[in-house]
Simulated assay, not measured.
Amino acid sequence: MSTLLEVSGVSVSFDGFKAINNLSFRIGQAEMRAVIGPNGAGKTTFMDIVTGKTRPDEGRVLWGERSLSLLGLSEAQIARAGIGRKFQKPTVFEDQSVHENLLMALQGPRGPWSVLFYRPNAADLARVGELAAEIGLADHLPRKAGELSHGQKQWLEIGMLLAQDPRLLLVDEPAAGMTPEEREHTTAILVEAAKTRAVVVVEHDMEFVRRLNCKVTVLHEGAVLAEGSLDHVTADKRVIDVYLGR
């Protein structure tokens, strides 16, 4: 499988503290990956570097078939290159309907005002229907996003990211605060998405990670401590000592 994203020898310090320490990581074109590790392991900083929010002190971050360096690009340029990120707290337009939220996302970063004067075509409306079905909100299209449950808002935000057709989706703790049923549905959404794109999930919930049934990367002190199946990494004595044994 050809590599989509390659992070190589990346380090970054904040006030003398090495948040990322010679980190190397790669993911293929259509692959699911879980990233786990204790608090302060560098999971969020890793996502910040890939999305251009944080500039590393050294190392390379290469993207796509042409090995484009992401380090010189702005956050907006990286998003346009095909990297989407979902933060822990869902950010949806609460006063707009599910339908309007998805339609706005299809329009890309043109802002809410342009949507007021925009007339969707048949292809856009069909795509909104497809996305709503994919995230399990087809019956909720007319509802205001603010009325949705926490889990449904998370799904809507994933749908809004998928509307922009990213090649890599970075998802931060999607299972947090969800009911068991919502967690199960979230798993299904992400597993389906990973059939056609790369999906990296940062998560603490081991049961959720097990359901994803994918390769796991364990970070510790800003570097990769172990990598492999969940059973493989959870049997690793170093992982038990620094993370699971706590």
Score class of each variant (00 low, 15 high):
Val239Arg: 03
Thr186Tyr: 08
Gly177Ala: 13
Gly146Pro: 10
Val171His: 04
Glu157Ser: 10
Ala145Asn: 07
Val239Ile: 07
Leu169Pro: 02
Gly52Leu: 02
Arg80Lys: 05
Val92Thr: 12
Gly222Val: 09
Pro166Ala: 05
Lys18Ala: 11
Ile135Glu: 11
Arg66Gly: 14
Pro166Leu: 04
Pro90Gln: 02
Leu244Asp: 12
Ile83Cys: 08
Asp205His: 00
Gln107Thr: 00
Leu168Cys: 02
Gly146Asn: 10
Thr3Trp: 14
Val92Lys: 11
Thr54Cys: 05
Gly37Lys: 04
Ala19Arg: 01
Leu169Ile: 07
Ser229His: 05
Leu62Glu: 07
Glu58Met: 13
Arg246His: 15
Ser8Trp: 10
Asp165Trp: 08
His150Lys: 12
Ile158Asn: 01
Val201Ala: 10
Lys86Leu: 07
Cys214Phe: 03
Leu230Gly: 03
Ala176Pro: 09
Val171Tyr: 08
Val239Leu: 07
Gly64Asn: 01
Ser149Leu: 08
Ser13Leu: 15
Leu68Asp: 04
Asp236Leu: 06
His220Cys: 07
Gly72Lys: 00
Leu73Trp: 09
Leu106Val: 12
Asp236Gln: 11
Arg85Asp: 02
Gly9Tyr: 12
Arg26Glu: 13
Leu148Ala: 00
Ala123Ile: 13
Ala133Cys: 13
Asn213Trp: 04
Ile49Gly: 04
Ala81Pro: 00
Ile189Gly: 00
Thr186Ser: 08
Leu102Val: 04
Glu147Arg: 00
His99Asp: 07
Leu4Ile: 09
Ala81Ile: 01
Arg211Leu: 02
Thr54Tyr: 01
Gly9Phe: 14
Leu131Tyr: 14
Val233Arg: 03
Asn101Gln: 04
Glu173Val: 09
Val12Lys: 03
Val191Pro: 01
Glu100Cys: 02
Ser74Gly: 15
Ala235Gln: 15
Pro166His: 09
Glu207His: 01
Ala30Asp: 13
Gln29Gly: 14
Gly146Tyr: 12
Ser97His: 09
Ala132Glu: 05
Ser97Trp: 09
Val98Leu: 09
Glu100Gln: 11
Val98Ala: 05
Asn21Thr: 13
Met32Ser: 07
Val7Arg: 08
Ala226Met: 06
Val202Cys: 04
Glu182Pro: 10
Pro174Ser: 14
Ala133Gln: 07
Val171Phe: 01
Ala41Val: 15
Val242Thr: 11
His150Pro: 01
Leu170Asp: 06
Gly84Ile: 00
Gln164Met: 14
Val128Met: 05
Arg167Val: 13
Asp57Glu: 08
Leu148Trp: 02
Val61Leu: 10
Ser229Ala: 10
Leu162Tyr: 02
Pro142Val: 02
Leu4Tyr: 03
Ala133Ile: 12
His185Cys: 02
Glu221Cys: 02
Val209Leu: 02
Glu192Gln: 15
Asp205Lys: 02
Arg85Ile: 08
Gly159Met: 04
Glu58Lys: 13
Thr234Arg: 11
Phe17Asp: 13
Leu137Trp: 06
Gly151Leu: 03
Val200Phe: 08
Val115Leu: 15
Arg167Trp: 09
Thr45Glu: 06
Arg26Cys: 06
Phe25Met: 14
Leu148Asn: 01
Val200Asp: 03
Gly28Cys: 13
Gly245Ala: 11
Leu137Tyr: 04
Val242Ala: 10
Arg85Thr: 05
Gly177Leu: 12
Glu192Val: 15
Glu31Gln: 15
Asp57Asn: 01
Thr91Cys: 09
Ser13Tyr: 15
Gly82Thr: 11
Ala105Thr: 09
Asp15Ile: 04
Gly40Asp: 01
Thr45Ala: 11
